[in-house]
Write a protein that binds this DNA or RNA. Structure first.
Lengths: 136, 136
DNA sequence: GTACAACTTTGTAACGATTACAAACTTGAA
DNA sequence: TTCAAGTTTGTAATCGTTACAAAGTTGTAC
């Protein structure tokens, strides 16, 4: 396993104690933790740790490219009336969500690796046609 | 277009004014609105409308099967250390997220229908192997 | 028509994840 | 040793959402 301090330096991040522990946790526990999970796991080891530090650190890591943040539709639940399987495309500029009729292998109701699939979502994110126009 | 009152009755939902207007909005504006978007669109027409009513109604519609609620990772951002393209499976019982190495057509950096794709996520939801065991 | 029960709607308060902000602390170079 | 830049911390605020209880509405039995 790569030295954590070197990884941080590689990404141009000062290797503070908090940052080292957080990255170490992420390397060891690949359960896609939330900020809160990380905080709870480390608060015994670093009793002064602040949740804000965890958020700040994760933000820094994500900005510098060490991590990827997963959360397609962020804080909002979106509702749709039609429910045939299709692909969603969300524009990062205007926040509109478009339906796309590209087909895909649907795993709904399949068993994969022993896990039972109930829902299958394909989500794209990018800049929509309209917003590309406006950029020019 | 189908009569809205009949659709509601079909799904065993009493057709109140609020419910009719909300369903009408969803039929007419297929932009996958948030609860708040719906509230804002209707508050002029129904000045006494409460946000709670919108939330209640959407919950009812979703429970009865008129709508589908989209929001894969809910309120939480999850972080991951490795970033090769893969499929995520989230267990609805234990909330763990598993990586799956099934391959899929990757649309990243493609242009589809004029929209530029920057991110491409495939997300499955269901009951994981462990939790299936526990159910028996 | 009245009364009552069941259902709906409403407003306020609370919640949980996240962010803003400013004060306190740490670091390293001049 | 000092100072500036960077880092950490705690508190308060924000945003989407939910809990809860009071008020309003409806339909049916009398």
């Amino acid at each position: 396993m790569k030295n954590i301090i070197e990884v941080l330096k590689e990404y141009d991040i000062a290797p503070s104690m908090q940052r080292i522990k957080i990255l170490e946790y992420l390397q060891n526990y690949k359960i896609h933790p939330t900020a809160d999970m990380i905080y709870q796991a480390l608060e015994d080891e670093i009793p002064t740790l602040s949740k804000t530090t965890v958020y700040n650190t994760l933000k820094t890591f994500t900005e510098k490219g060490i991590l990827v943040a997963l959360s397609l539709f962020e804080n909002e639940v979106r509702y749709e009336y039609n429910t045939y399987p299709h692909i969603h495309f969300k524009c990062i500029k205007c926040n509109k969500i478009y339906d796309m009729d590209k087909s895909f292998d649907l795993y709904k109701d399949d068993i994969i690796d022993g896990h039972k699939v109930i829902e299958h979502h394909v989500n794209l994110k990018g800049v929509c046609k309209e917003c590309i126009k406006e950029e020019e």
